[in-house]
Simulated scan of single mutants.
Amino acid sequence: MLAGKTGSGKSSFVRMLGGLDVNGNEPVSDGGLESCTTKPTTYVTRYNGRTVLLLDTPGFDDSALDNLAILTDIVSNLYIWALQDKEIHTHGVVFLHDISETRFGGSQQKTLQLLKSMCGPEAMGNVIIGTTMWSDNGTKRQAQTIRVPDGDEDVAKSIIGDLLARPPTKLLVQTELLIPPHTCEATTVGRIAIPEGKREAERLAKEMEEQKLEAERLAKEKEEQREKERVEDRKRYEEEQERSRKEMEDRLEEEQKKNAEEREKREEEHQREREEYAEKQRKEREEYQRKQEEDRERYERERAEDRRRQDEAIAAANRRAEEAIRRAQEELDDDGWCPIIFRLVTMIVGKALGVL
């Protein structure tokens, strides 16, 4: 099992050993203060032909999970291992600590306290403390403390080899879980963590109640403020409606006045157009009558001139006929067979007169 504060390098340790989960994925770590391991996860790797299970656990100072919930998940996994004791042998715990932290803070001390409660005195000999985040390489052993430079696979494998060389052991919590009632509450670590968890839950419940009351108070104040704003908005709306109505009435009255003036102006323009049209029609009729009169007078003059010319032509024809008759008469007196010619001339003259 791997334990330690969030960001101490547990997931990186698993990757150095080539551990993969049931889906064949490596553990994810962003290298920051936020934990990427949100629940205990088992990874499988191989060492010297042996299958090794690595239980990567979230830190108890995790920002995403409650400590009691984390502990319950870890205990559940260890209980499963204890039930499969013939197939799975627990060889120990690797506790990783970030060496760049100059103080062993409260969260680390809390983790160690819970770790001791889970392991018990007999299994503490199978606990190795590894210090991580070293800037240089190398392996240095001081009692049960091992220096683990970042990315040094040899050191990680030496730790696993050290644990596998030791006899398998059962953590205290695993032994206690095999005894009825098989619950976390009945274990040593549970008796330590659960009361604290309950106190924390009560504290959180109290805070939540206080927050609820505060939220209700704020909601009431906000609702009162909203009601006040709604009243003011309604008043402004009514005033705006009244102002809009007055403006609309004034605009309508102005438009009606303007329309009346435009209608009057159009009527005057139409009347003027009608008068102009009537005057134009009158002038056209007069011009037409004048032209008709001129045409009639011209026709009368032309008829009179035609009658005059006809009269002159008839008179001229009569004169020619008389002259022809006279000459014919004279010739008749001189020649006895001329009566026939006289009749012919008379006929011709008569036809000529008939044509005219």
Rank of each mutant, 00 (worst) to 15 (best):
R245G: 00
K258F: 08
E232A: 14
E254P: 02
E254K: 13
E262A: 13
K246Q: 10
E268H: 12
E255L: 12
R298A: 01
E302W: 03
E253H: 08
D295E: 15
A316F: 03
E269N: 11
E279W: 00
R303L: 10
E300M: 07
Y288N: 10
R285N: 02
R290M: 08
E300Q: 13
E254F: 08
R290C: 03
E269Q: 14
R309P: 00
E262I: 10
A316I: 04
E264H: 05
E287P: 03
E268F: 04
R236V: 04
A315D: 07
E253I: 06
E242L: 11
E261Q: 10
E293M: 02
V231K: 14
R303F: 01
Y288H: 08
R308Q: 06
K283E: 11
K280M: 15
E255V: 05
E232R: 12
A315L: 11
E276P: 00
E267P: 04
R290T: 11
R236C: 01
R290N: 12
E247F: 06
E279T: 04
E238F: 14
Y299P: 00
Q292M: 08
M248A: 15
A313H: 11
A260L: 12
E247R: 09
E253C: 04
E297K: 15
L252D: 02
E240S: 15
Q281K: 15
E249R: 08
E238K: 12
R234Q: 11
Q289P: 00
E305V: 13
R263Q: 10
K283G: 01
E286C: 01
E264I: 03
Q271L: 14
E247S: 10
R263F: 09
R251Q: 15
